[in-house]
Design a binder for these strands. Structure first.
Lengths: 207, 207
DNA sequence: GTTTGTGAATAGTTTCACAGCA
DNA sequence: TGCTGTGAAACTATTCACAAAC
């Protein structure tokens, strides 16, 4: 199955596998099996094997997967091996929390710039990052930043997305609840916190 | 198609439709069409019609959908018509941001309690909510709280999930990056911010 | 004996195209 | 005419079961 289109769902799971592998590796293990990795992350072993099979032979039959080589290969597929600099726009409650969030580093991300529209915030620092005026967004191109994180109110999100795209950003993590129109070649992933909470009651027993 | 199992993907999209409908309604419209709603939220019109068709007749052929009745029906399907009280555990950066987050109210959610393990935080208030000791979690049952939001560090998340389940919580919104094992009958939805960011580079043009 | 990798079977979802109603 | 609702077709993803590799 080496020469196939990769299912989106497989790509969605790869970071999960990566995290599981990192976890096992930190626990001192040198190798693992699809069964053990599956137990750690809560999926089924054949799913892991199938997903990996799209990219080539990751493991050794009868033995399993070498963790450090597995981590290296998945990192490469996801292009996390080079490191990425992101710009965060909107230093409110959520934006501030993300600036301080330690979880990005494990995947090689760094929030290298922060922007806000509020004059009182501009010039200050938050979690070591200087807050700049939104107007300065247009100068991102020269700063090797190709990722944007949008944590502004709904009403401003499309305008900010346009500005980020204009500044050469190719990937956006969007925390606003509005649909963002972007040109082909730019990928948006939306995290809508209230919406995820909103489908929880559907699955809960009545009461 | 009235007597079918509802696809999970349909349930995932219902809150999106709800938000679009609320948006149009706030803009002053009284009715809409699948085409207009689709444009607002960035999906295709037949997707909307198909999804609604699992639940019955929502619209009028030749005319469209009445917004207030649409909103009422979707709210009912998602069980958002009754209101829900949630407990948040872990008042760190992200937890604090969520306590102050205004977006939950639109869906009828209220964060009615907050818990932390840090003695210095216990007894204080954040966004109007008193911070209680994690040990007090066991008394949740009597407070009409059946939803939990977990914003604690990875290492503690399973323990907190167990405590929430023990206190009668039936739905969990999990922001930690660890897989949570819960009994049948409890639904977990995980938002893993770093993981979503981690699959963005895969989709970005090389550079 | 153990565990991977993968075709084939099954299940689930999206898309189409149009009948039927306002 | 305009728009919904939905079977049927096309597509995508999951699950199985087992041959091949160690």
């Amino acid at each position: 199955m080496r020469y196939h289109k990769i299912p989106d769902e497989t790509v969605r799971r790869l970071p999960v596998y990566l995290r599981g592998a990192l976890h096992l590796s930190k626990s001192g293990a040198e190798s693992t099996s699809s069964q053990q990795l599956a137990d750690v992350i809560g999926v089924e072993p054949w799913q892991i094997r199938k997903d990996f099979s799209y990219f080539g032979d990751f493991g050794t039959p009868g033995v399993g997967y070498n963790l450090s080589s597995l981590i290296k290969q998945v990192n490469k597929i996801l292009r996390l091996d080079t490191g990425h600099r992101a710009a965060l726009v909107g230093v409110g409650n959520l934006g501030s929390a993300l600036l301080a969030f330690p979880g990005f580093r494990a995947y090689g991300f760094e929030i290298a710039a922060a922007f806000d529209i509020d004059r009182r915030k501009i010039g200050r620092r938050k979690a070591g990052v200087a807050i700049e005026a939104v107007a300065a967004l247009s100068k991102l191109r020269s700063r090797d930043i190709r990722l944007g994180i949008i944590t502004v109110p709904e009403a401003a999100s499309q305008r900010i997305a346009d500005a980020l795209v204009g500044a050469g950003v190719k990937g956006i993590l969007n925390f606003s609840s509005r649909y963002l129109g972007v040109p082909r070649g730019v990928k948006v992933i939306t995290i809508d916190i209230a919406m995820d909470l909103a489908r929880l009651p559907y699955y809960m027993p009545a009461g």
